[in-house]
Amino acid sequence: MLELRLVQGSILKKVLESIKDLVNDANFDFSSSGLTLQSMDSSHIALVALLLKSEGFEHYRCDRNTSMGMNLGNMSKMLKCAGNDDILTIKGDDVSDTVTFMFTSDLVREIFFYKIADFEMKLMDIDNEHLGIPEAEYHAIVKMPSAEFARICKVLASIGDTGDIGTANIVLRQNTTVDKPEDATVIEMNEPVSMTFALRYMNTFTKATPLSNTVTISLSPDLPVVVKYKIAEMGYVRFYLTPKMEE
């Protein structure tokens, strides 16, 4: 028996929008501590790791560890049927090969338009390869406004990486003299680090911008970069990307 209720159903919608362009099919792993997902893109150079802790759900019942394979494109289509203010309930069981998403509008504010919609989606068998990602010390950790990071990635990608139209150089300095803490740029540097990454992937990661006002980018020369979007009170979406290096 699996039953989860998320008052802010829009969180799962945003999670799906942030990962569906990177990964087509993925296993959602449910345990008593929460919902996790780990999946690589088809070229195996980028990885997404999701955590939604059980405490972040209004109701969370998971009698035994369950893994559900879902097509993220189809799941996104179903979640798009939910209003942004809808409460989302996910239901599953051990015998059927389907998962049910139920959307209910807020009873208090929409008392005259009370609505329940449910969508049943077929599950699939996915042979998911898991990677063990150890905790690591990073040379540099940058915490900055997520919208600013998205803008920088977009601008650089539009200029391109061939040098045909010229070059772009963006310097981001630490800035903590801001009214709101989420507007700060904080650079923790233990050692200088210089790395090259595929902007196409970075741009895909920035689809997670609506999930968090800030993003944390952790860099070490011998490790994939980690781009982390914290989901308030619930967990995170983390993206890993291998660096481009001289062969």
């Binding site: 195996h44 150079i45 990677l131 063990g132 011998d222 291998t242 481009k244 290096m245 001289e246 062969e247």
Partner: peptide, 14 residues
């Protein structure tokens, strides 16, 4: 040129 390695060369597969 610049090349990208598989994630498996950084993290352990299981």
């Amino acid at each position: 040129g610049l090349e990208q390695s598989d994630l498996g060369s950084y993290f352990m597969r299981f």
